[in-house]
Design a protein around this nucleic acid. Structure first.
Ligand SMILES: [Zn+2]
Ligand SMILES: [Zn+2]
Ligand SMILES: [Zn+2]
Ligand SMILES: [Zn+2]
Lengths: 146, 146
DNA sequence: CACCTTATTGAGACTAAATCTCAATAAAAA
DNA sequence: TTTTTATTGAGATTTAGTCTCAATAAGGTG
């Protein structure tokens, strides 16, 4: 079976499992999105829909992309979650974050081995490294129990 | 010299260096923000301003926070940059990203050692790890030259 | 197939975060 | 003190995304 048919089957099974229906709009979004070779955002999907004269509304795009994420067919970058957020840097060492997906608790940590590996990766690809984000998301000790 | 005075001096030097002026509003924001012990966002700063009856407008808050970032006094999480962004996951292995801050080129990579270390960190803090972001930001080979 | 229940859709109103506009103000240099 | 020009605040605007609700259409059942 072709990769695309398998993916479609996954989608259909996910829908059935969640008492959701396969619609024209979802089929069209599936085909369009799964054919994309690069990163994309919702507005770009919307533009492609208009270029191809497909009949799918903005609201539906914003509704279906999260379904494709849940079905494990696409992934959403964790970058861009809520509003811009800051912390004082002055006089503080660099650190990265563990974030609880339930209670939003933030734990700061630093792992020197990872920091070194990150620099090696940048070098390997010819990048001059300016900054990085590393955020580990999961359930904290407390929220894991419930 | 106290830590705060040093930080203030850094701020003042940054302003002078960029032909910017020290104002009442900037002084007040500096004090308020530098005293924060945790993560915060722009609206929270605005609320604190109102509670303290300080005279600083929303527009100014949104204008000054990036100045403090440029002066290296606070840092902005790279999480939350522009609009939500996706990529096809089906049939693709997990990977992380190198992003060029000039031309926005995205290079995908995976480092197994880092992946393992991330799981160890989660375990150490009692987290059940669900996901992670690691984005290395810098200047790519091409943009480095210019 | 025809019927019925209910999930889904689209248009446009709405929201939240952030940015922009522009006249009035106030640093700070002369 | 005068002059120059960076900065400010109020509110309009933009952008990304969500919500509402009547109309539609899946798809299960007989
Ligand atoms: Zn780090
Ligand atoms: Zn938690
Ligand atoms: Zn990874
Ligand atoms: Zn580049």
């Amino acid at each position: 079976m072709s990769i695309m048919k398998e993916a479609l089957k996954t989608f259909e099974e996910h829908l059935k499992l969640n008492k959701m229906r396969m619609t024209q709009e979802r089929r069209q979004l599936f085909s369009l999105v799964m054919s994309l070779k690069t990163h994309f955002n919702s507005e770009e999907v919307l533009e492609k829909i208009k270029k191809k004269n497909l009949q799918v509304s903005r609201a539906t795009v914003y509704r279906v992309l999260p379904v494709l994420v849940k079905a494990n067919l696409i992934q959403q970058s964790l970058l861009q979650e809520g509003q811009a957020h800051f912390e004082v840097k002055w006089n503080k060492d660099h650190h990265d974050h563990l974030i609880c997906s339930v209670c939003n608790k933030i734990i700061e940590f630093k792992d020197n081995t990872i920091e070194i590996l990150q620099r090696e990766i940048a070098t390997k690809y010819g990048f001059y490294l300016e900054d990085h984000v590393m955020e580990l998301v999961g359930k904290c000790k407390t929220c894991k129990k419930n």
